[in-house]
Design a binder for these strands. Structure first.
Lengths: 157, 157
DNA sequence: TATTGTTATACTCTATAACTATA
DNA sequence: TATAGTTATAGAGTATAACAATA
């Protein structure tokens, strides 16, 4: 196994070094590993499961429509995910009284408890980056990533 | 379809707003869309295919071992990918003379031509971010993402 | 006729174990 | 015995079309 941080024959990045998406993809490998170690494996949650719980924590109740948009999931795939979360006893689905086509998703008591565990583990996950980024750098990174995420890709030419 | 940039009932992010990995994942949605529009769809390349071509452009020849590490792919999955690239006539695999277990991967002439097309389209892809980031911000973002990517996740507690 | 959510299904991606050949 | 690469295979993730219920 290779544990050395620098190899004799490093692979040159070439133009990839100036491609933002390449660096985003590589950073994602690290952040995903951090998530898995601190939250995902201990609590048996995928990143998207964790995000769902955090969104329900912040919004009390959301429709599948809102969740699909916030989590960048297609409607069918969200249905499958909600089925699993419900089978696991973490969420409840309640038909809307005002529009009986739609429904509200909310945390069950077990979901509430798991969300609290996930919340408690979040600071340690973020602290794992302390060795790589100062607090100011971390705030700057989030701000810049947010600008990218909010950006609309230009129309076809 | 929803084209409005701001909704009446925005979904609150809650603690996710301070989770770096969440913002990385969201930024990746945008950068992936940019890639697809400018490079992926026109040239029929996935992000990882593009990265492979760029790496071979910068390094002339690389072993599957090096490529698997640089692209974060397992050895079996890289084999499948190289098979497809070879069937498509983009790369060649040459057995090493010094160690006949290993081999060198290099661009074919068709691969060279496609790589040049991809290189030519890269500036437009990156320019798509001009509306979101200044040049200084873009450089800063890459630097910060690089610090994250190079960071080793701490050992289990 | 449009919208919310579901079902069915196919396709791709990813992960793991077992294998061949070379060293 | 260890390493480079391959094969086989199963599981998870993702995308699309068709459908039911409601508006």
């Amino acid at each position: 196994m290779d544990t050395s941080p620098a190899k004799k024959n490093p692979v040159r990045q070439g133009v990839l070094g100036d491609v933002v998406g390449y660096h985003v993809a590589r950073a994602r490998v690290t952040t995903q590993a951090m998530f898995l170690r601190h939250v995902g494996q201990p609590l048996d949650l995928r990143p998207v499961d964790y995000s769902l719980l955090m969104l329900l924590d912040a919004n009390t109740r959301l429709t599948p429509k809102q969740l699909a948009q916030a989590l960048a999931l297609s409607a069918p795939n969200l249905t499958i995910m909600l089925d699993r979360m419900q089978e696991r006893g973490l969420i409840e689905r309640i038909r809307s009284e005002t529009d009986r086509r739609s429904q509200h998703v909310l945390l069950s008591s077990a979901g509430r408890a798991l969300t609290d565990l996930a919340l408690a583990r979040t600071p340690a996950m973020e602290a794992d980056l302390d060795g790589a980024l100062s607090r100011a750098e971390r705030a700057m990174l989030i701000e810049l990533l947010d600008k990218v995420a909010r950006h609309q890709v230009s129309a076809a030419d």
